[in-house]
Design a protein around this nucleic acid. Sequence first.
RNA 1: GGAGGGAUGGCUGAGUGGUUUAAAGCAUCGGUCUUGAAAACCGACGUACCGCAAGGUACCGGGGGUUCGAAUCCCUCUCCCUCCGCCA
Length: 434
Amino acid sequence: MLDIKRIREKTDEVREGLRRRGADPVLLETVLELDRQRRALLASAEEKKNRRNATSKEIGAARKRGEDTAQVQAEVRTLGDQITALDEQLRVVEADLQAAVLRIPNVPCATIPTGTDAAANRVARVEGQPRTFSFAPQDHVTLAERLGIMDLPRATRMTGSGFPLLLGAGARLQRALIQYMLDLHTQKHGYTEMLPPFVVNSASMCGTGQLPKMADDMYHCEKDDLWLIPTAEVPVTNYFREEILDRPLPVLLTAYTPCFRREAGSAGKETRGILRVHQFDKVEMVKFVAPETSYQELESLLGHAEDVLRGLGLHYRILELCSGDISFAAAKCYDIELWAPGHNGWLEVSSCSNFEDFQARRANIRYRDAEKKVQFVHTLNGSGVALPRLMIALLENGQQEDGSVLLPPALVPYMGGVERLVPPGAGEVIGGKC
RNA sequence: GGAGGGAUGGCUGAGUGGUUUAAAGCAUCGGUCUUGAAAACCGACGUACCGCAAGGUACCGGGGGUUCGAAUCCCUCUCCCUCCGCCA
Protein backbone atom coordinates (compact mmCIF):
# COMPACT_ATOMS: atom_id res chain seq x y z
CA MET A 1 0.00 0.00 0.00
CA LEU A 2 1.29 3.41 -0.91
CA ASP A 3 1.39 6.15 1.72
CA ILE A 4 -1.65 8.36 1.21
CA LYS A 5 0.52 11.38 2.07
CA ARG A 6 2.95 10.42 -0.65
CA ILE A 7 0.07 10.10 -3.11
CA ARG A 8 -1.23 13.49 -2.02
CA GLU A 9 2.07 15.36 -1.90
CA LYS A 10 4.14 13.65 -4.60
CA THR A 11 1.32 12.93 -6.99
CA ASP A 12 3.40 13.39 -10.15
CA GLU A 13 6.08 11.00 -9.00
CA VAL A 14 3.46 8.34 -8.17
CA ARG A 15 1.56 8.93 -11.41
CA GLU A 16 4.77 8.49 -13.42
CA GLY A 17 5.61 5.29 -11.55
CA LEU A 18 2.19 3.82 -12.23
CA ARG A 19 2.42 4.86 -15.87
CA ARG A 20 5.71 2.95 -16.19
CA ARG A 21 3.93 -0.12 -14.88
CA GLY A 22 1.00 0.26 -17.20
CA ALA A 23 -1.40 0.54 -14.26
CA ASP A 24 -4.87 2.03 -14.63
CA PRO A 25 -4.45 5.81 -14.19
CA VAL A 26 -8.08 6.29 -13.11
CA LEU A 27 -7.41 4.58 -9.78
CA LEU A 28 -5.04 7.35 -8.71
CA GLU A 29 -7.51 10.12 -9.51
CA THR A 30 -10.21 8.24 -7.60
CA VAL A 31 -7.94 8.05 -4.58
CA LEU A 32 -7.12 11.75 -4.72
CA GLU A 33 -10.77 12.72 -4.88
CA LEU A 34 -11.79 10.37 -2.05
CA ASP A 35 -8.91 11.71 0.03
CA ARG A 36 -10.19 15.26 -0.43
CA GLN A 37 -13.68 14.17 0.60
CA ARG A 38 -12.37 12.31 3.59
CA ARG A 39 -10.43 15.24 4.97
CA ALA A 40 -13.35 17.63 4.54
CA LEU A 41 -15.73 15.26 6.35
CA LEU A 42 -13.17 14.56 9.04
CA ALA A 43 -12.59 18.23 9.82
CA SER A 44 -16.30 18.83 10.09
CA ALA A 45 -16.96 15.76 12.27
CA GLU A 46 -14.06 16.42 14.59
CA GLU A 47 -15.09 20.01 15.15
CA LYS A 48 -18.54 18.84 16.22
CA LYS A 49 -17.08 16.12 18.42
CA ASN A 50 -14.93 18.69 20.13
CA ARG A 51 -18.01 20.73 20.90
CA ARG A 52 -19.89 17.70 22.15
CA ASN A 53 -17.06 16.64 24.44
CA ALA A 54 -16.74 20.10 25.93
CA THR A 55 -20.49 20.52 26.40
CA SER A 56 -20.92 17.09 27.95
CA LYS A 57 -18.28 17.96 30.48
CA GLU A 58 -20.15 21.14 31.31
CA ILE A 59 -23.36 19.17 31.75
CA GLY A 60 -21.63 16.93 34.25
CA ALA A 61 -20.39 19.94 36.20
CA ALA A 62 -23.74 21.74 36.05
CA ARG A 63 -25.62 18.71 37.33
CA LYS A 64 -23.24 18.47 40.25
CA ARG A 65 -24.29 22.02 41.10
CA GLY A 66 -27.91 20.89 40.88
CA GLU A 67 -28.77 22.93 37.78
CA ASP A 68 -31.30 21.88 35.18
CA THR A 69 -29.52 20.73 31.99
CA ALA A 70 -32.46 19.49 29.92
CA GLN A 71 -32.15 22.33 27.40
CA VAL A 72 -28.42 21.78 26.77
CA GLN A 73 -28.87 18.02 26.61
CA ALA A 74 -31.40 18.42 23.82
CA GLU A 75 -28.96 20.61 21.90
CA VAL A 76 -26.15 18.11 22.26
CA ARG A 77 -28.47 15.34 21.15
CA THR A 78 -29.01 17.22 17.89
CA LEU A 79 -25.26 17.65 17.60
CA GLY A 80 -24.90 13.92 18.19
CA ASP A 81 -27.29 13.17 15.33
CA GLN A 82 -25.21 15.35 13.02
CA ILE A 83 -22.05 13.56 14.14
CA THR A 84 -23.67 10.18 13.48
CA ALA A 85 -24.56 11.29 9.96
CA LEU A 86 -21.08 12.64 9.27
CA ASP A 87 -19.43 9.52 10.68
CA GLU A 88 -21.56 7.38 8.42
CA GLN A 89 -20.54 9.38 5.36
CA LEU A 90 -16.95 9.21 6.54
CA ARG A 91 -17.14 5.46 6.99
CA VAL A 92 -18.31 5.00 3.41
CA VAL A 93 -15.66 7.33 1.98
CA GLU A 94 -12.90 5.73 4.03
CA ALA A 95 -13.93 2.23 2.98
CA ASP A 96 -13.93 3.31 -0.67
CA LEU A 97 -10.60 5.05 -0.23
CA GLN A 98 -9.05 2.03 1.45
CA ALA A 99 -10.36 -0.30 -1.24
CA ALA A 100 -8.96 1.97 -3.96
CA VAL A 101 -5.54 2.41 -2.30
CA LEU A 102 -5.24 -1.35 -1.83
CA ARG A 103 -5.61 -1.77 -5.57
CA ILE A 104 -2.79 0.60 -6.46
CA PRO A 105 0.43 -1.31 -7.16
CA ASN A 106 3.82 -0.31 -5.79
CA VAL A 107 5.82 2.42 -7.53
CA PRO A 108 8.70 0.74 -9.35
CA CYS A 109 12.26 1.57 -8.35
CA ALA A 110 13.67 4.31 -10.61
CA THR A 111 16.62 2.20 -11.77
CA ILE A 112 14.74 -0.74 -13.25
CA PRO A 113 14.16 -1.03 -17.00
CA THR A 114 10.95 0.48 -18.34
CA GLY A 115 8.77 -1.78 -20.44
CA THR A 116 5.36 -3.32 -20.77
CA ASP A 117 6.17 -7.03 -20.63
CA ALA A 118 8.83 -9.70 -20.25
CA ALA A 119 10.45 -8.69 -23.54
CA ALA A 120 11.88 -5.60 -21.84
CA ASN A 121 13.51 -7.52 -19.00
CA ARG A 122 17.26 -7.07 -18.84
CA VAL A 123 19.61 -10.04 -18.65
CA ALA A 124 21.90 -8.94 -15.85
CA ARG A 125 24.25 -11.92 -15.83
CA VAL A 126 24.67 -15.45 -17.12
CA GLU A 127 26.48 -17.87 -14.80
CA GLY A 128 28.06 -21.22 -15.57
CA GLN A 129 28.14 -23.02 -18.88
CA PRO A 130 25.50 -25.10 -20.64
CA ARG A 131 26.37 -28.77 -20.72
CA THR A 132 27.17 -30.21 -24.15
CA PHE A 133 25.56 -33.48 -25.12
CA SER A 134 26.81 -36.31 -27.32
CA PHE A 135 23.20 -37.51 -27.64
CA ALA A 136 19.78 -35.86 -27.92
CA PRO A 137 18.76 -34.80 -24.38
CA GLN A 138 15.34 -35.93 -23.20
CA ASP A 139 12.89 -33.78 -21.31
CA HIS A 140 11.99 -34.35 -17.67
CA VAL A 141 8.76 -36.20 -18.37
CA THR A 142 10.52 -38.84 -20.42
CA LEU A 143 13.35 -39.12 -17.92
CA ALA A 144 11.05 -39.33 -14.89
CA GLU A 145 8.90 -41.96 -16.56
CA ARG A 146 11.97 -44.06 -17.36
CA LEU A 147 13.16 -43.73 -13.78
CA GLY A 148 9.69 -44.37 -12.38
CA ILE A 149 9.93 -41.46 -9.97
CA MET A 150 6.78 -39.60 -10.92
CA ASP A 151 3.17 -40.72 -11.49
CA LEU A 152 1.11 -37.95 -13.01
CA PRO A 153 -1.73 -40.06 -14.49
CA ARG A 154 -2.66 -41.52 -11.12
CA ALA A 155 -2.29 -38.12 -9.45
CA THR A 156 -4.72 -36.72 -12.01
CA ARG A 157 -7.22 -39.46 -11.24
CA MET A 158 -6.76 -38.89 -7.53
CA THR A 159 -7.05 -35.09 -7.58
CA GLY A 160 -6.90 -33.49 -11.00
CA SER A 161 -4.31 -32.31 -13.46
CA GLY A 162 -1.52 -30.17 -12.15
CA PHE A 163 -1.06 -31.98 -8.85
CA PRO A 164 2.23 -33.80 -9.03
CA LEU A 165 3.05 -37.06 -7.35
CA LEU A 166 6.62 -38.22 -6.75
CA LEU A 167 7.62 -41.75 -5.97
CA GLY A 168 10.63 -43.55 -4.56
CA ALA A 169 13.87 -41.78 -5.38
CA GLY A 170 11.89 -38.83 -6.77
CA ALA A 171 10.17 -38.24 -3.48
CA ARG A 172 13.44 -38.67 -1.69
CA LEU A 173 15.21 -36.26 -4.04
CA GLN A 174 12.59 -33.64 -3.34
CA ARG A 175 13.04 -34.11 0.40
CA ALA A 176 16.83 -34.03 0.00
CA LEU A 177 16.66 -30.74 -1.90
CA ILE A 178 14.48 -29.13 0.76
CA GLN A 179 16.91 -30.23 3.41
CA TYR A 180 19.92 -29.06 1.42
CA MET A 181 18.44 -25.61 0.87
CA LEU A 182 17.25 -25.10 4.44
CA ASP A 183 20.65 -26.18 5.76
CA LEU A 184 22.38 -23.74 3.42
CA HIS A 185 20.21 -20.78 4.42
CA THR A 186 20.26 -21.48 8.14
CA GLN A 187 23.87 -22.55 8.52
CA LYS A 188 25.62 -20.40 5.93
CA HIS A 189 23.34 -17.41 5.31
CA GLY A 190 22.09 -16.74 8.82
CA TYR A 191 18.36 -17.34 8.42
CA THR A 192 16.11 -18.75 11.12
CA GLU A 193 14.00 -21.67 9.96
CA MET A 194 10.24 -21.48 10.34
CA LEU A 195 7.56 -24.07 9.70
CA PRO A 196 4.39 -21.98 9.42
CA PRO A 197 0.73 -22.78 8.79
CA PHE A 198 -0.02 -23.51 5.13
CA VAL A 199 -3.42 -21.84 5.42
CA VAL A 200 -3.96 -18.19 6.36
CA ASN A 201 -6.78 -15.70 6.88
CA SER A 202 -7.78 -12.84 4.61
CA ALA A 203 -6.01 -10.17 6.63
CA SER A 204 -2.69 -11.94 6.07
CA MET A 205 -3.38 -12.31 2.36
CA CYS A 206 -4.05 -8.60 2.21
CA GLY A 207 -0.93 -7.83 4.22
CA THR A 208 1.42 -9.20 1.57
CA GLY A 209 -0.68 -7.97 -1.35
CA GLN A 210 -2.28 -11.18 -2.70
CA LEU A 211 -5.70 -9.81 -1.80
CA PRO A 212 -7.74 -8.22 -3.15
CA LYS A 213 -6.27 -8.56 -6.64
CA MET A 214 -5.31 -12.24 -6.79
CA ALA A 215 -8.38 -13.77 -5.14
CA ASP A 216 -9.22 -15.83 -8.22
CA ASP A 217 -5.74 -17.31 -8.40
CA MET A 218 -5.88 -18.82 -4.95
CA TYR A 219 -7.64 -21.72 -3.25
CA HIS A 220 -10.22 -20.53 -0.75
CA CYS A 221 -11.87 -22.58 2.01
CA GLU A 222 -15.22 -20.85 2.04
CA LYS A 223 -16.58 -22.39 5.22
CA ASP A 224 -13.75 -21.02 7.29
CA ASP A 225 -12.82 -18.06 5.08
CA LEU A 226 -9.24 -19.32 4.95
CA TRP A 227 -6.84 -19.42 2.02
CA LEU A 228 -4.22 -21.97 0.97
CA ILE A 229 -0.93 -20.14 0.71
CA PRO A 230 0.43 -19.50 -2.81
CA THR A 231 3.90 -18.96 -1.31
CA ALA A 232 5.59 -19.07 2.10
CA GLU A 233 6.04 -15.32 1.72
CA VAL A 234 2.51 -14.91 3.06
CA PRO A 235 2.73 -16.64 6.44
CA VAL A 236 6.38 -15.72 7.01
CA THR A 237 5.98 -12.01 6.25
CA ASN A 238 2.76 -11.87 8.26
CA TYR A 239 4.59 -13.34 11.25
CA PHE A 240 5.09 -9.75 12.45
CA ARG A 241 1.79 -8.26 11.27
CA GLU A 242 0.53 -5.46 13.54
CA GLU A 243 3.79 -5.38 15.47
CA ILE A 244 6.47 -2.87 16.33
CA LEU A 245 9.61 -5.01 16.22
CA ASP A 246 11.63 -4.95 19.41
CA ARG A 247 14.61 -6.79 17.98
CA PRO A 248 17.57 -5.60 15.92
CA LEU A 249 17.22 -5.58 12.14
CA PRO A 250 17.62 -7.28 9.82
CA VAL A 251 15.48 -10.28 10.73
CA LEU A 252 16.03 -13.20 8.34
CA LEU A 253 13.57 -16.07 8.12
CA THR A 254 13.42 -19.09 5.83
CA ALA A 255 10.67 -21.64 5.43
CA TYR A 256 9.80 -24.70 3.45
CA THR A 257 6.13 -24.87 2.48
CA PRO A 258 3.99 -26.33 -0.22
CA CYS A 259 2.46 -23.64 -2.44
CA PHE A 260 -1.02 -23.74 -3.95
CA ARG A 261 -1.96 -21.80 -7.06
CA ARG A 262 -5.07 -22.11 -9.17
CA GLU A 263 -3.17 -20.74 -12.19
CA ALA A 264 -6.47 -19.36 -13.43
CA GLY A 265 -6.23 -18.15 -16.98
CA SER A 266 -3.06 -20.02 -17.78
CA ALA A 267 -4.68 -23.22 -19.00
CA GLY A 268 -2.58 -24.94 -21.64
CA LYS A 269 0.47 -22.77 -21.10
CA GLU A 270 3.61 -24.79 -20.57
CA THR A 271 1.79 -27.49 -18.69
CA ARG A 272 3.85 -30.51 -19.72
CA GLY A 273 4.98 -32.54 -16.75
CA ILE A 274 5.60 -30.48 -13.65
CA LEU A 275 6.52 -27.25 -15.45
CA ARG A 276 3.44 -25.44 -14.14
CA VAL A 277 1.43 -27.05 -11.37
CA HIS A 278 -1.26 -26.21 -8.83
CA GLN A 279 0.79 -27.50 -5.93
CA PHE A 280 4.52 -27.35 -5.52
CA ASP A 281 7.19 -27.20 -2.83
CA LYS A 282 9.40 -24.22 -2.27
CA VAL A 283 11.95 -22.91 0.19
CA GLU A 284 11.49 -19.20 0.70
CA MET A 285 13.66 -16.49 2.28
CA VAL A 286 12.13 -13.41 3.87
CA LYS A 287 13.92 -10.34 5.22
CA PHE A 288 12.73 -7.52 7.46
CA VAL A 289 15.24 -4.69 7.14
CA ALA A 290 15.88 -1.01 7.85
CA PRO A 291 14.74 1.13 4.88
CA GLU A 292 18.18 2.55 4.09
CA THR A 293 19.63 -0.95 3.68
CA SER A 294 16.96 -2.63 1.60
CA TYR A 295 18.65 -2.41 -1.79
CA GLN A 296 21.91 -3.89 -0.56
CA GLU A 297 19.86 -6.53 1.24
CA LEU A 298 18.21 -7.35 -2.10
CA GLU A 299 21.63 -8.00 -3.64
CA SER A 300 22.61 -10.35 -0.80
CA LEU A 301 19.23 -12.09 -0.99
CA LEU A 302 19.85 -12.73 -4.66
CA GLY A 303 23.28 -14.08 -3.74
CA HIS A 304 21.72 -16.52 -1.28
CA ALA A 305 19.37 -17.88 -3.94
CA GLU A 306 22.24 -18.15 -6.40
CA ASP A 307 24.27 -20.04 -3.83
CA VAL A 308 21.71 -22.85 -3.96
CA LEU A 309 22.23 -23.22 -7.71
CA ARG A 310 26.00 -22.74 -7.66
CA GLY A 311 26.21 -25.50 -5.06
CA LEU A 312 24.41 -27.81 -7.47
CA GLY A 313 26.63 -26.83 -10.41
CA LEU A 314 23.75 -25.50 -12.50
CA HIS A 315 23.84 -23.06 -15.39
CA TYR A 316 21.57 -20.05 -14.76
CA ARG A 317 20.93 -16.43 -15.62
CA ILE A 318 19.71 -13.39 -13.72
CA LEU A 319 16.98 -11.18 -15.13
CA GLU A 320 16.26 -7.70 -13.90
CA LEU A 321 12.53 -7.38 -14.44
CA CYS A 322 11.13 -4.33 -16.18
CA SER A 323 8.49 -1.99 -14.76
CA GLY A 324 5.66 -3.80 -16.52
CA ASP A 325 6.68 -7.30 -15.42
CA ILE A 326 7.32 -6.96 -11.68
CA SER A 327 4.66 -8.20 -9.32
CA PHE A 328 1.98 -5.95 -7.83
CA ALA A 329 3.75 -5.32 -4.51
CA ALA A 330 7.37 -5.20 -5.73
CA ALA A 331 9.52 -2.12 -6.38
CA LYS A 332 12.35 -4.15 -7.87
CA CYS A 333 12.68 -7.79 -8.75
CA TYR A 334 15.32 -10.21 -10.02
CA ASP A 335 14.31 -13.51 -11.53
CA ILE A 336 16.67 -16.45 -11.67
CA GLU A 337 16.25 -18.87 -14.54
CA LEU A 338 17.82 -22.31 -14.88
CA TRP A 339 18.88 -23.79 -18.17
CA ALA A 340 16.96 -26.97 -18.97
CA PRO A 341 18.49 -28.76 -21.97
CA GLY A 342 15.62 -31.20 -22.51
CA HIS A 343 13.09 -28.40 -22.45
CA ASN A 344 15.61 -26.37 -24.45
CA GLY A 345 14.78 -23.20 -22.54
CA TRP A 346 15.16 -21.19 -19.37
CA LEU A 347 13.01 -22.02 -16.35
CA GLU A 348 12.18 -19.48 -13.65
CA VAL A 349 13.05 -20.92 -10.25
CA SER A 350 13.31 -17.80 -8.13
CA SER A 351 12.06 -14.26 -7.79
CA CYS A 352 13.92 -11.99 -5.41
CA SER A 353 12.02 -8.81 -4.65
CA ASN A 354 12.28 -5.63 -2.62
CA PHE A 355 8.84 -4.42 -1.59
CA GLU A 356 10.23 -1.38 0.24
CA ASP A 357 7.50 -0.36 2.74
CA PHE A 358 4.58 -1.48 0.54
CA GLN A 359 3.84 -4.71 2.39
CA ALA A 360 4.89 -3.26 5.75
CA ARG A 361 2.22 -0.57 5.42
CA ARG A 362 -0.44 -3.11 4.54
CA ALA A 363 0.59 -5.49 7.29
CA ASN A 364 1.52 -2.67 9.69
CA ILE A 365 5.01 -3.95 10.49
CA ARG A 366 7.18 -1.29 12.08
CA TYR A 367 10.37 -0.86 14.08
CA ARG A 368 12.08 1.85 16.13
CA ASP A 369 14.98 3.55 14.39
CA ALA A 370 18.13 4.96 16.06
CA GLU A 371 16.13 7.99 17.24
CA LYS A 372 13.44 5.66 18.68
CA LYS A 373 11.07 6.86 16.01
CA VAL A 374 8.51 4.34 14.83
CA GLN A 375 8.96 3.58 11.13
CA PHE A 376 7.81 0.97 8.65
CA VAL A 377 10.35 -1.75 7.92
CA HIS A 378 11.22 -2.74 4.38
CA THR A 379 10.38 -6.32 3.45
CA LEU A 380 12.05 -8.54 0.88
CA ASN A 381 11.63 -12.09 -0.18
CA GLY A 382 13.13 -14.53 -2.58
CA SER A 383 12.60 -18.13 -3.55
CA GLY A 384 15.51 -20.18 -2.49
CA VAL A 385 14.32 -21.97 -4.65
CA ALA A 386 11.14 -23.49 -6.12
CA LEU A 387 11.38 -27.24 -6.48
CA PRO A 388 9.61 -28.58 -9.56
CA ARG A 389 11.71 -26.66 -12.04
CA LEU A 390 14.85 -27.26 -10.04
CA MET A 391 13.99 -30.95 -10.25
CA ILE A 392 13.49 -30.62 -14.01
CA ALA A 393 16.88 -28.93 -14.43
CA LEU A 394 18.62 -31.55 -12.30
CA LEU A 395 17.11 -34.42 -14.27
CA GLU A 396 17.73 -32.86 -17.67
CA ASN A 397 21.26 -31.67 -16.89
CA GLY A 398 22.28 -34.85 -15.10
CA GLN A 399 20.89 -37.27 -17.67
CA GLN A 400 23.12 -39.93 -19.21
CA GLU A 401 22.69 -41.72 -22.50
CA ASP A 402 21.59 -44.89 -20.66
CA GLY A 403 18.67 -43.08 -19.03
CA SER A 404 20.27 -42.74 -15.62
CA VAL A 405 20.74 -39.38 -13.94
CA LEU A 406 23.89 -38.25 -12.15
CA LEU A 407 23.24 -36.18 -9.03
CA PRO A 408 25.39 -33.20 -7.99
CA PRO A 409 27.90 -34.20 -5.28
CA ALA A 410 26.33 -31.71 -2.84
CA LEU A 411 23.15 -33.81 -2.76
CA VAL A 412 24.78 -37.18 -2.23
CA PRO A 413 24.91 -36.90 1.59
CA TYR A 414 21.23 -35.97 1.59
CA MET A 415 20.46 -38.99 -0.61
CA GLY A 416 22.04 -41.47 1.75
CA GLY A 417 25.10 -41.82 -0.44
CA VAL A 418 23.25 -42.34 -3.70
CA GLU A 419 25.07 -40.69 -6.60
CA ARG A 420 22.91 -41.73 -9.51
CA LEU A 421 19.25 -42.40 -10.24
CA VAL A 422 18.76 -45.49 -12.38
CA PRO A 423 15.69 -46.99 -14.06
CA PRO A 424 14.11 -49.90 -12.20
CA GLY A 425 15.15 -53.36 -13.32
CA ALA A 426 12.93 -55.80 -15.17
CA GLY A 427 10.13 -57.23 -13.08
CA GLU A 428 9.83 -54.30 -10.73
CA VAL A 429 6.39 -52.77 -10.72
CA ILE A 430 7.11 -49.30 -9.49
CA GLY A 431 10.33 -47.53 -9.89
CA GLY A 432 12.48 -45.14 -8.01
CA LYS A 433 15.24 -47.64 -7.45
CA CYS A 434 18.58 -46.04 -6.79
C1' G B 1 -19.01 -29.44 20.23
C1' G B 2 -20.91 -28.13 25.71
C1' A B 3 -20.20 -25.17 30.46
C1' G B 4 -17.65 -21.39 33.06
C1' G B 5 -13.79 -17.40 33.53
C1' G B 6 -10.96 -13.73 31.11
C1' A B 7 -8.76 -9.74 27.37
C1' U B 8 -6.64 -2.35 30.10
C1' G B 9 -0.19 1.13 27.61
C1' G B 10 6.72 -2.58 26.51
C1' C B 11 5.37 -5.66 31.19
C1' U B 12 2.52 -6.10 36.00
C1' G B 13 -1.94 -4.10 37.41
C1' A B 14 -6.03 -0.40 39.46
C1' G B 15 -10.36 1.37 37.50
C1' U B 16 -18.64 -0.80 37.32
C1' G B 17 -21.50 6.28 33.88
C1' G B 18 -18.89 12.66 34.41
C1' U B 19 -11.13 16.64 35.93
C1' U B 20 -9.61 8.85 33.47
C1' U B 21 -6.91 14.14 28.10
C1' A B 22 -6.26 5.65 32.16
C1' A B 23 -3.81 5.41 39.01
C1' A B 24 0.47 3.00 40.66
C1' G B 25 4.74 -0.04 40.09
C1' C B 26 8.45 -2.22 36.85
C1' A B 27 11.25 -1.50 32.44
C1' U B 28 13.39 2.29 29.19
C1' C B 29 15.52 7.26 28.14
C1' G B 30 17.48 12.20 29.86
C1' G B 31 19.30 15.03 34.10
C1' U B 32 21.38 15.91 39.28
C1' C B 33 24.91 13.51 42.42
C1' U B 34 29.59 10.24 41.69
C1' U B 35 36.54 9.14 39.76
C1' G B 36 33.07 5.58 37.37
C1' A B 37 28.88 2.67 38.41
C1' A B 38 24.89 1.55 41.70
C1' A B 39 21.39 3.79 44.90
C1' A B 40 18.59 8.12 45.70
C1' C B 41 16.18 12.31 43.71
C1' C B 42 14.08 15.22 39.39
C1' G B 43 12.01 14.84 34.59
C1' A B 44 10.44 12.34 30.16
C1' C B 45 8.01 8.10 28.46
C1' G B 46 1.75 5.01 23.53
C1' U B 47 -0.16 4.82 18.34
C1' A B 48 -2.67 6.91 14.32
C1' C B 49 -5.22 10.67 11.76
C1' C B 50 -6.62 16.02 10.63
C1' G B 51 -4.41 20.94 10.90
C1' C B 52 0.55 26.13 8.44
C1' A B 53 0.12 26.40 13.58
C1' A B 54 -2.31 26.69 18.13
C1' G B 55 -4.61 22.62 18.73
C1' G B 56 -8.17 18.77 17.80
C1' U B 57 -10.10 13.68 17.05
C1' A B 58 -9.90 8.44 17.68
C1' C B 59 -8.06 4.11 20.15
C1' C B 60 -8.73 0.14 27.15
C1' G B 61 -9.33 -7.48 22.06
C1' G B 62 -12.81 -6.41 17.04
C1' G B 63 -17.71 -4.63 15.54
C1' G B 64 -22.50 -2.56 16.88
C1' G B 65 -25.93 -0.28 20.52
C1' U B 66 -27.85 2.72 24.97
C1' U B 67 -26.59 7.89 26.86
C1' C B 68 -25.81 14.86 26.90
C1' G B 69 -21.39 11.80 28.20
C1' A B 70 -18.88 4.71 27.95
C1' A B 71 -12.61 1.42 29.74
C1' U B 72 -17.14 1.19 32.80
C1' C B 73 -23.99 -0.70 30.85
C1' C B 74 -26.24 -3.96 26.65
C1' C B 75 -25.64 -7.15 22.05
C1' U B 76 -22.30 -9.72 18.96
C1' C B 77 -17.70 -11.72 17.13
C1' U B 78 -12.56 -13.21 17.86
C1' C B 79 -8.81 -15.00 20.88
C1' C B 80 -6.86 -16.99 25.63
C1' C B 81 -7.56 -19.97 30.27
C1' U B 82 -10.20 -24.06 33.19
C1' C B 83 -13.41 -28.36 33.04
C1' C B 84 -16.26 -32.04 30.04
C1' G B 85 -16.91 -34.58 25.30
C1' C B 86 -14.63 -36.08 20.64
C1' C B 87 -10.06 -36.99 18.11
C1' A B 88 -4.42 -37.62 15.19
